[in-house]
Design a protein around this nucleic acid. Structure first.
Lengths: 198, 198
DNA sequence: CTCGTAAGTAAATAAACATTTACTTATATT
DNA sequence: AATATAAGTAAATGTTTATTTACTTACGAG
């Protein structure tokens, strides 16, 4: 039996993310992707059932899975609260700024009904994405360090600003100079922490 | 000369937003839209140059313009800081929860390169969207009420959480009960304010 | 009242689309 | 070395796409 060529699989995923980031999800076609990845259209269908399957796997495995791994490096649920949040912000910024293509698909996950649904189902079925972070918040709630909120609310308060800031980071071509610096980012992280402490 | 039928124009816009919210921007086609709006494809091309023109006008006029108007009602730049931010949060929540279709396209504005670019250009050319809010922040910076940051950073810290919270509000079908209540929202708003005060 | 004109329609066009068919290739096992 | 088998390809399928063509309709100005 001829073995799968993993380079081809990776090429398909990498080029797909590139097309989505540059032309938009609404302009990704299977034929365009095949041509750009130097592969026959049929090859994509060996690895993925259809276009929706490709998009969902791209989103959950290639993007969300990799992001989860990156954000959790050197993080532990029993870190001191401010230190833990700062580490998560640092990791998020490091990862996203070096993976703009993944960042764009991550944003599409908040708009596209297909990806939105896929995320919810994956989150329900496989327990939880970002479980160590949930544990971290749980510990700090029971120790009366932070205000008591559902996880979804904590997530919004602690992490949604950094996504907007990363967006600004990438938009700086349209401005005279970069406004999102490490220093600003740290100050923002501290503001967010201050807001949520008891 | 036969006058434009404004009902048809509004039907096109309303149905377009509906399709985008339910099936995704990537599944909106001109023919599908024409059929659903009970209109000939040609009629859409009388009002819009092409598909991109339709999407950009839908985004800037129908969605962003209406949102700006809604968020600024009963808001004034010289309100006391906490009071002003609370009013902006209230208005945002009121408007978005009653206009889910607009909310989805607003989210696409953060992913789709086409809409992203359109927003930036509109923001540069017509001065500024949300100018009264910029003024409000300016006043409160010079009065040493809040930390000094660029506007983009203030926007991320003050308003990105509420978009995530509105998303959670709409996701409640997938959960036993609604977690985003007026009470939680107010507490979140207060957390965000606390973080940014000097 | 009628007529010029832009709004509107139904049907057509060519290109692009997702997916498949029919075939070839590479290799792990025998 | 031969072969069974899944990976891979090029070209074709029928459908859907954005946009246009050729025609009809409604109405305000004369």
């Amino acid at each position: 039996m001829r073995p799968k060529n993993l380079e081809k699989e990776q090429a398909i995923r990498t080029i797909a993310l590139q097309i989505i980031a540059e032309e938009g999800l609404e302009n990704l076609s299977m034929q365009k992707l095949a041509k750009a990845a130097n592969v026959s259209p049929r090859t994509i269908y060996i690895k993925y059932q259809d276009k929706e399957d490709l998009l969902i796997k791209l989103f959950l495995e290639e993007v969300l899975g990799a992001y989860e791994k990156a954000i959790l490096t050197q993080f532990s649920p029993d870190m001191e609260f401010a230190k833990g949040v700062k580490k998560l912000w640092q990791n998020t910024f490091q990862y996203l700024k070096n993976n703009r293509h993944s960042f764009v698909l991550l944003q599409y996950g908040k708009s596209s009904p297909l990806l939105n649904k896929a995320f919810q189902q994956a989150n329900i079925i496989e327990g939880h994405f970002f479980a160590p972070i949930h544990h971290f918040l749980e510990i700090n709630m029971t120790n009366n360090i932070i205000k008591k909120f559902p996880h979804e609310v904590h997530r919004a308060l602690l992490f949604s600003p950094i996504f907007d800031l990363v967006n600004e980071y990438f938009d700086y071509q349209s401005r005279p100079k970069q406004i999102i610096t490490e220093k600003i980012l740290l100050e923002c992280c501290e503001a967010v922490i201050k807001g949520i402490l008891i």
